[in-house]
Structures are given as structure tokens and as C-alpha cells.
Amino acid sequence: MEPQLKRGFLDLCILAAVAEEDSYGYQIIKDAPACLELSESTLYPILRRLAKQGALSEYSREHNGRLRKYYSITELGRQELDSFVGDAGSIQEIIAYVKRGAGK
């Protein structure tokens, strides 16, 4: 996928990954769509930014004798997701338009 396009979806997909239940780094990578090719080096800065922005909250929980950091979506994060869902119609319109232009 085109990097510019991918960048726009990464934040939303990470928020979506923790929307139903709290999750941790590796699980988020496993749950995210494969086409995003999410890795730790891509995930780390996004998690930090979303947490500082207030869209995610983080906490540590004991797991098999070590501490694991979990991420939880906040109200602000849910608003971001709702905003995207609200724009879904426009996005589909753009996709259809581009498809027509590409002759498909």
C-alpha cells in the first residue's frame, strides 16, 4: 500500500484494535490488517503519540512474572473512530471515483 495512504489508516486501525478490549503491542500487530505491514518500529511512535494525545491510555499489568504494558481506548479515541465511520461514505465515493478514472 502507498505509504502516504497507509499512514492515514494506521492510527485508526490501532485505535480499532483496542476498541473492543484492552490490548498490548504484539497483539495489536497480530490483529491489525496484514496489508498495513505493522511492525514494532511503526507501532511504537504511533502508540506514544496516541497516548500523549489522549486517545489511548496505558497501564502495566503483571503477566507471567513480568510487566506487560496494555493500551486502552479513551473517549477521545472513540470520537476519532466515530468521526472516521462518519466519513466512510465519502471515502467510498472517492474510491469509486478513482476506480472509474482507472477504468475499472
Partner: peptide
């Protein structure tokens, strides 16, 4: 510290 902690956890999880 935060960066090393993140990657330590990532390796342990895998």
C-alpha cells in the same frame, strides 16, 4: 528506558 522496555516486551511476547 521507555524504548528499551517496549522492545524487550515485544521480543518476550513473540
Amino acid at each position: 528506558a521507555e524504548g528499551v522496555e517496549f522492545y524487550t516486551e515485544a521480543i518476550d511476547d513473540r
